[in-house]
């Protein structure tokens, strides 16, 4: 786990040096620096994910255990209340339907925070013994005009929901325990809340550049510590 972190940092520094020494007089165009960053593998564009759920009655015990294990709990756990909208851009090209999914997430409890645009790709089919789901993901912070932008771009709103819960961090891992609710549409997602289920969704995720598979092992070890309260496992979406 630590080795993985150090390796990224060293690689990150080296490629920054390369970028700096390349051209001191003219600034690099953004495209050039992006391609050089991609080539040196410092952009975190993969998500390693484990998911599980815990019934409402036992969520307090789980939070207690997480508070003991995790880093960011000085003044009580961090809470969040987010509203997520899922869009998809659909196109029919020569018989094959192409779908490009995009998610927009905004914080309802912090009005000044920027919106987050997320692209999540398909699960990487690889090794069956891999402990976690690995899928490509690109996270971009954006201004509030993103919703109108996506709608004019041709995206269609598939569904939306609100998530309210707690966020914990341990090293590079992020653990969220949240309750998903259906929201009243439009501009007032806080009203007309219907709970979807009697349990909390627990997710353990890490964002890293591709190739850092050692992290998956660390995630599995951490997940072991949360058993038998919650079983975090990789969920095969095709079987759902």
């Amino acid at each position: 786990m630590h080795d993985g972190g150090k390796a990224t940092r060293v690689i990150g520094i080296r490629s920054a040096e390369q970028v700096l020494t390349k051209n001191m007089t003219t600034p690099d165009s953004a495209k050039d620096s992006l391609t050089s960053a991609l080539n040196s593998n410092i952009i975190p564009n993969r998500e390693y994910l484990l998911q599980g759920s815990v019934v409402d009655q036992y969520v307090e015990v789980l939070l207690h255990r997480l508070r003991g294990l995790c880093d960011n709990v000085d003044d009580g756990a961090e809470t969040f209340y987010d509203h997520e909208m899922c869009f998809s851009l659909c196109m029919n090209s020569s018989g094959n339907p192409l779908v490009f999914p995009l998610r927009v997430r905004r914080a309802l409890d912090a009005q000044d925070a920027p919106y987050q645009l997320r692209y999540i790709g398909q699960q990487e089919l690889g090794d069956k013994n891999r402990p976690t789901i690995v899928r490509s993901s690109i996270d971009v912070a954006c201004s509030a005009s993103i919703v109108e932008f996506l709608q004019e771009l041709g995206c269609r709103l598939d569904f939306e929901y609100t998530a309210r819960g707690y966020m914990f961090r341990k090293g590079r891992m992020k653990i969220t325990v949240s309750k998903i609710c259906k929201c009243g549409g439009g501009n007032k997602p806080g009203e007309n809340i219907e709970l979807i289920s009697q349990s909390y969704l627990v997710e353990l995720s890490v964002l890293a550049p591709s190739g850092y598979d050692a992290i998956a092992e660390d995630m599995r070890v951490f997940a072991e510590q949360l058993k038998p309260l919650v079983h975090l496992e990789k969920i095969d979406y095709k079987r759902l």
Binding site: A30, I43, L89, F100, L117, A141, C142, S145
Partner: peptide, 28 residues
Amino acid sequence: SILETGSKTIPLITDGLFDLLMMKMSNF
């Protein structure tokens, strides 16, 4: 980014990774 449909112009301000996203949308 500035989106121009015939009638509307919508500006958008994002982080640097938006370029990567546009590259992924090259089919569209």
